[in-house]
């Protein structure tokens, strides 16, 4: 029972921290979650983390919320997902309630703007670090199709601003087709 409580508490504090430091929303939280749950706590494998990210991106709602629900569920079932969803929504709930009262003062405060601007550079560096690690492990896998998918998806999303839903559908289809042919060629070599 004591151990259970510890898991829920770690889940709550981790999601609370991550949410409190995720500016701008969206994918920013994913590298931070990868650092926390894959590298520090060793609760989730790197591949599984990428799968969970794909599911959060394909579902409606905020990615940060969806990813927290998935991680909570993976670690401690339904109750875990409730704990991590509360951890994720509390920081914006508290901060926005306060800010909405003083919002013109907050918006024009030079110190707050300087602090946020400085943090932006730090956040960018953290994401760059995680992207390099993830990209390296795709390239080290020595799978030609994966490397092509990675480069193609980047060009499509960054330069051509293609809707993410189409990128996900296309890449899933490419994966399914290549798995089908790999299985077929495995079978024919077995027969020979």
């Amino acid at each position: 029972m004591k151990k259970d409580f510890k898991i829920y508490w770690t889940l709550f504090t981790s999601t609370f921290y991550l949410s409190a430091f995720t500016f701008g929303g969206g994918f920013v939280i994913v590298p931070l979650m990868k650092k926390k749950f894959v590298d520090d706590l060793n609760w989730i494998e790197e591949k599984e983390m990428l799968d969970l990210t794909a599911i959060s991106q394909s579902s409606p709602g905020a990615i940060a919320v969806n990813a927290s629900i998935l991680i909570g569920y993976r670690i401690a079932g339904f109750l875990g997902s409730l704990v991590s969803i509360i951890g994720t929504i509390l920081p914006p709930l508290i901060i926005l309630s306060i800010v909405s009262i003083f919002y013109t003062k907050f918006r024009d405060n030079a110190a707050i703007n300087a602090l946020l601007k400085g943090m932006q550079a730090g956040v960018a560096a953290v994401i760059a670090d995680v992207v390099i690690s993830l990209g390296n492990s795709v390239i080290k896998g020595k799978n030609f199709i994966s490397a092509i998918v990675m480069i193609g998806a980047f060009i499509a999303t960054y330069f051509f601003k293609v809707n993410v839903i189409y990128i996900i559908l296309a890449c899933g289809l490419i994966g399914a087709i290549s798995a089908y042919f790999r299985k077929k060629s495995d079978r024919s070599t077995n027969i020979e």
Binding site: D51, Q57, S146, I167, I168, G175
Partner: peptide
């Protein structure tokens, strides 16, 4: 197929 795409996103 999705994993390398997620890295790109």
């Amino acid at each position: 197929g999705l994993r390398p795409a997620v890295v790109s996103l």
